[in-house]
């Protein structure tokens, strides 16, 4: 088991819990999604896993090692691309691995080709479109050596069409490497299309209220988005999310 979250609670002010008794796990090479409404505490959960916040209660373990409050164990992709404006695209995608003390330029170039960014190797971030920036940010997190990748709503700022393209592209890259991924989103479609398993989070305080296994075979294809099974899953997830949205 890659990541295990056991009974984790957290509050900013010591009174009102933002996260309460969170319990879930991510297996080796598994793509797991946390689905929850905005403001429920998904980013806060990532900050706990990343070690910049410490849980008030519970254990976060990676490869059976407790990592409460320890930094540098995950590869992270934030909601905004967060590329350095003074670095070229190539230098930017190398940043994550550089912070961990390694640099593999050849690998970086190969991945940029796969992302259709080979012509932009020497370009600066402001010359890229929103989707291209996110692709560069994703490559940066693939190149980071930590085995678990944590992606925090990486596509929420993109328009609908670009988002679908990005999801397909992400699937194709991920299905080749099969890293363990913890993905956060508030979009039901995105969760079902990408994940092996989905945890649904309630709001205020956030806790896991449902676990769903996505049965579709891989590689995933767009046609699956139109199948009955897909709609049934969506309905199930919607029903689980609904009470948390209305209250």
């Amino acid at each position: 088991m890659k990541l295990e979250i056991k009974d984790v609670s957290y509050s900013f002010d010591g009174k009102q819990n933002i996260l309460e008794n969170i319990h879930f796990h991510v297996g080796d090479g598994e793509f797991v999604t946390i689905l929850g409404p905005s403001g429920s505490g998904k980013s806060t959960l990532f900050h706990l896993i990343g070690g910049i916040l410490k849980p008030n209660q519970g254990i976060i373990s990676l490869d059976s090692k407790k990592i409460n409050g320890l930094k540098g164990h995950i590869s992270y992709m934030p909601q905004q691309p967060s590329l350095l404006p003074w670095r070229t695209v190539l230098e930017n995608v190398l940043l994550g691995s550089e912070l961990a003390g390694i640099r593999d330029k050849e690998m970086a170039k190969a991945l940029l080709v796969k992302a259709g960014l080979e012509e932009y190797e020497k370009a600066y971030p402001h010359e890229l479109s929103g989707g291209m920036k996110q692709r560069a940010a994703f490559i940066r997190s693939i190149l980071s050596p930590q085995e678990l990748m944590c992606l925090d709503e990486p596509f929420s700022a993109l328009d609908e069409l670009t988002r679908l393209q990005m999801q397909k592209w992400l699937m194709s890259v991920w299905e080749e490497n099969r890293r363990s991924v913890l993905f956060v989103t508030h979009s039901i479609d995105e969760a079902v299309f990408l994940s092996d398993r989905i945890y649904v989070l309630s709001a205020k305080p956030a806790t896991v209220i449902k676990e769903v296994v996505v049965p579709f075979p891989r590689p995933r294809r767009e046609e699956q988005l139109l199948s009955d099974e897909f709609f049934n899953l969506k309905r199930e997830l919607y029903a689980a999310l609904k009470p948390t949205v209305t209250t």
Partner: peptide, 8 residues
Amino acid sequence: HYFKMMGA
């Protein structure tokens, strides 16, 4: 924030 999350 990115730097901190990556353990810089």
